[in-house]
């Protein structure tokens, strides 16, 4: 019985949150990895693009709320999501047109594009703060829980319980749908295959008559959808704050690199590796151990390996370990 209780505490505080967080990181890392695979640079503006797309979605959410439109028990933000994606897509295509395309035609070195993306990052940063300011925005509405800890306890009769928030469930379900759609697109459609071909061997793709500008355009559209979804899911699950989104850059990149830059499958694996390590290492295990260990052996302290303030350190250390022992990542990514 005690073991069951400890498992349930583990589920409530580690497994479920890490699963949701991992899904958010995975979708974010997919965006990074696609840009890397097709446009061949690390996009430093990714975090701030996520902030931008979430901002737009929040504006639409507020508008829907003001006119009384809602999505029943689901958050209104899901209704606003397509609009957020559309506007982000426009912004990305515009950015590509006036900023990135020039360097592509110049065949600039990847590192130059990284610096260019730093400029875009600044602009986005300013844009987001123009629109919505620097503060915290909570835009989740609808039903808060699918079931609560108390409901679970009453149902099971156990001492401990676990609950699932609507946003956590939505995150995981959306992630599954998004990943399935993306892989279907990449593996089954002509355009998707041409993207993979372009990422694999640009010269041969050109020789085969694949239009690079079209591949790039489709990539930006997909990335717009991925960033918006990742940003909105993270914002629903936690809360929206522009600076937090900038800081997400680190775990997202860590996820993409750990998985292998350029490998979509790797991005997903990397997202969960980073999320689970971050949560398990910064979680205070006392409660789990009290149930799991025999009497007299339970820990006196919190049994926390590291304080939550050091969660960046976790992604960083994993990143370094992977880079040292397997520089191409868990799934073989590209090296330029």
């Amino acid at each position: 019985m005690d073991l069951l209780n400890s498992l349930i505490v583990l589920t409530n505080f580690v497994l479920v949150p890490a699963l949701a967080y991992g899904a958010q990181l995975a979708i974010g890392a997919l965006g990074v990895t696609l840009i890397y695979g097709i446009l061949r640079f690390s996009n430093f503006a990714h975090g701030d693009t996520m902030a931008f797309s979430t901002t737009i979605t929040i504006l639409f959410t507020w508008w829907f709320q003001s006119i009384g439109a809602n999505f029943g028990p689901l958050p209104t933000a899901l209704l606003a999501l397509p609009f957020g994606i559309a506007i982000t897509a426009l912004l990305m295509l515009g950015t590509d047109r006036i900023v990135y395309r020039f360097y592509r035609q110049q065949k600039a070195k990847p590192v130059i594009l990284v610096i260019v993306s730093m400029g875009v990052m600044f602009v986005m940063n300013g844009l987001v703060r123009f629109i919505i300011g620097v503060g915290d925005q909570n835009f989740a509405d609808g039903e808060r829980f699918i079931f609560t800890v108390r409901e679970f306890r009453d149902w099971s009769g156990l001492e401990e319980g676990f609950g699932i928030r609507t946003t956590q469930a939505i995150t995981v379900i959306t992630a599954v749908i998004v990943v399935a759609l993306l892989f279907w697109f990449l593996n089954k459609t002509r355009t998707g295959k041409s993207m993979r071909a372009f990422s694999d061997n640009e010269d041969l793709a050109l020789l085969s008559g694949i239009n690079p500008e079209r591949v790039v355009m489709v990539t930006w559209l997909i990335v717009a959808a991925l960033t918006t979804i990742a940003g909105v899911l993270y914002g629903l699950d936690k809360s929206f704050k522009p600076f937090t989104y900038f800081q997400l850059l680190l775990p997202i990149f860590a996820a993409a690199i750990v998985g292998g830059l350029g490998s979509p499958l790797g991005a997903i694996a990397g997202g969960f590796v980073i999320a689970f390590s971050e949560v398990t290492i910064t979680y205070a295990w006392k409660k789990v151990l009290v149930y799991a260990l025999p009497d007299g052996l339970e820990p006196s302290g919190l049994a926390q390996l590291m304080s939550t303030d050091y969660k960046f350190a976790v992604s960083f250390v994993i990143l370094i370990i992977v880079l040292l022992f397997r520089p191409t990542g868990l799934f073989k990514g590209q090296s330029v």
């Binding site: 640079f41 690390s42 430093f44 990847p110 590192v111 990284v114 800081q247 850059l249 680190l250 990149f253 860590a254 690199i257 830059l261 303030d309 050091y310 960046f312 350190a313 992604s315 960083f316 990143l319 370094i320 880079l323 040292l324 520089p327 090296s335 330029v336």
Partner: peptide, 24 residues
């Protein structure tokens, strides 16, 4: 010692990370 010799973007991410850790 750890990150040099890796690709340029990796060094970038590594330095970005270490800066956040120092601030933390």
């Amino acid at each position: 010692k750890t990150a040099l010799g890796l690709r340029s973007d990796y060094l970038a991410i590594a330095t970005l990370g270490i800066a956040e850790i120092i601030i933390a």
